[in-house]
């Protein structure tokens, strides 16, 4: 009997597979949720937030800017537009993105730009927050 999850994180740049995961936490549209072994089949949209994987090796944190999650027979597939390990986040870049987004929101042009700037702001804040947890 397999008591672990196999988690695969797929982005357009890379595919990573994690074996022996006991718990996977992801940011759903209605809030963060946790997947444990023998979860029912699930298809969910993910928001900007944090992904936590718990295995024997300890807790690993990842930041994401949204995507999808599928659970099927103890296989969790995460389909993400972007995904960075907390330790590898480029904080400087996130900070400058934050600055840029703030500036653009103050300038206040078309609605469209505001929406984009908002999304960029959220992404940057999320990265900085998650990077801060491991440093």
């Amino acid at each position: 009997m397999n008591n672990y999850l196999t988690v695969s994180i797929t982005t357009p740049q890379k595919k990573r597979v994690f074996e022996g995961v006991s718990s996977c936490t992801a940011p759903g549209t209605k809030g963060s949720f946790q997947i444990l072994v023998d979860h029912a089949p699930l298809l969910s949209q993910l928001e900007i937030g944090e992904i936590k994987l718990e295995s024997d090796k300890g807790l690993e944190r990842y930041s994401t800017s949204g995507g999808f999650l599928e659970v099927l027979k103890n296989n969790v597939s995460l389909l993400l537009e972007s995904c960075e390990k907390a330790e590898e986040i480029d904080v400087e870049r996130a900070k400058s993105a934050l600055e840029r987004a703030r500036k653009r929101m103050q300038e206040k042009s078309a609605d469209l730009d505001i929406r984009r700037a908002e999304a960029a702001l959220l992404r940057a804040l999320n990265r900085i927050r998650i990077a801060g947890k491991v440093r």
Partner: peptide
């Protein structure tokens, strides 16, 4: 048969 979150159409 999956559970869907949110609903299928939004997904």
């Amino acid at each position: 048969s999956y559970l869907y979150e949110p609903d299928k159409l939004s997904l």
